[in-house]
Design a protein around this nucleic acid. Structure first.
Lengths: 242, 242
DNA sequence: TAAGACAATAATGTCGACATTTTTATATTT
DNA sequence: AAATATAAAAATGTCGACATTATTGTCTTA
């Protein structure tokens, strides 16, 4: 019935593995880690919620050992916290932390862009154009499949940042993106209908591409900062939490 | 005989817990995580070395479960890697990765300083002066207790960076410092006798403090970059690995 | 009625055991 | 003798079980 013992039986694994990118080469704990991360980032497990082992066992159909491993990995990314003999808890959210994460993210993104303009070659520019095209084509279907649009949006910005050609810096960037996405998901549920916000987004994207091609570092950094921090300001002002 | 079942028996726990900062409030896995990290950073476990469970069990006197948990935590920090059904391995080192880590670290440190100069108050300046004094007083005993000097050196730079008042950014900074310390420890074993390097260090520290007090961001950023990347250049040129 | 002590319940953290897989050693064949 | 196939050995990854600890509910008492 569990994942790892019946690896040949596809009927039991598919309902779990079909959810997202779970490489078959990874062991059970790594797969659970991905699923658990998704559930936390998407808000299935609420901030501050206690993660009881029995419930997790039932949800993912695995034993305690891989669960503890998966939770341990999320521990370092500060998505869960642990207290001795009191189990695991979803990391609580706070307005101060959110502001800190978003501002740090803006600084890191600026750094990526600065280095990318220095080091980026033609392939880098081509990758940006391609990602922008992919995102622009999907713009009409924004309301229908928002998460696919978000995927392409992320791919666009990743194509830009990857020009820095620093795996270490990109690792930091990814970690911050994931932390921020918790707050973003909470926000998107309320503000998805605001189409105008996304139209402004599109204009900023075009301006950003122009600045990148022209290697205008100062302008590009200003645009990306506004692009990241602009929408989050709405969230800061809301007094829904903290 | 194990740690957690005989928590009242101090005779068996002290030889393990006395090694370093292992809070009694943490569970067994967290303590093992700290010890394991130390052993990897200090080079007890060599890069690329296979971490056999039986050996780890004997070394730390615990079962498999807490070991897997501890290793899972180090997995995210990229200190160990794991392959399905082939166990854990110490993350290998490479010259390209080292260069990337050090350069990223320099950028992050510059960012911390830039923000610290903006946001830092009198307490921040006082903390720097105090840490510098503590380090300077220990300078004569550098050869006798190099690791205590290193601790004070780190405390000095942390006092500076903490002025940015961004837990998220400081978390990133700490993570990069730990990754870099693997390479630094390998280097220190060979170059500890070079006293002149540390004397240059001292001059740079004084210049850095001056720039910080005068809120000379440009100068401070240049100094910290040279301070971080200067010594590492020696390591880059050595062809001892990769 | 409210506060505190005590018992019952539930949950956590670790170990040992078992099935599966990888690695090593041996034997066989050309 | 070298290469492949086979068998033995070791190591990994997961689960169930047990001791310890926290939490909840109940009962007593002021």
């Amino acid at each position: 019935m569990s994942i790892q013992t019946k690896m040949t039986d596809s009927s039991t694994t598919t309902p779990i593995n079909s959810a997202d990118s779970a490489k078959q080469t990874d062991n059970c704990a790594a797969q659970i880690m991905g699923l658990l991360k998704q559930d936390i980032l998407n808000g299935y497990f609420k901030p501050g919620e206690k993660l009881r082992m029995n419930r997790l066992k039932e949800r993912y159909n695995v034993g305690i050992s891989p669960l503890r491993e998966a939770l341990s990995q999320l521990l370092i990314e500060q998505l869960v916290i642990v207290e001795n003999q009191r189990g695991f808890t979803v990391h609580p959210i706070s307005k101060t932390e959110m502001i800190d994460i978003y501002q740090t993210r803006a600084h890191i993104e600026q750094l990526c862009i600065e280095l990318a303009i220095e080091r980026g070659n033609d392939d880098w520019e081509a990758g940006i154009i391609a990602a922008a095209h992919s995102m622009r084509k999907f713009h009409p279907k924004l309301e229908q499949e928002p998460q696919e649009w978000e995927r392409r949006h992320q791919a666009f910005h990743t194509a830009i940042a990857s020009g820095c050609e620093s795996p270490t810096l990109l690792h930091v960037r990814r970690s911050l993106y994931e932390k921020a996405s918790r707050y973003r998901n909470l926000w998107l549920q309320d503000n998805m209908q605001q189409r105008t916000v996304f139209d402004d987004n599109q204009k900023e994207h075009d301006a950003l591409i122009d600045a990148l091609i022209e290697k205008d570092t100062v302008n590009a950094k200003a645009i990306i900062k506004a692009h990241l921090l602009g929408p989050s300001r709405l969230l800061w002002q809301s007094t829904s939490f903290d």
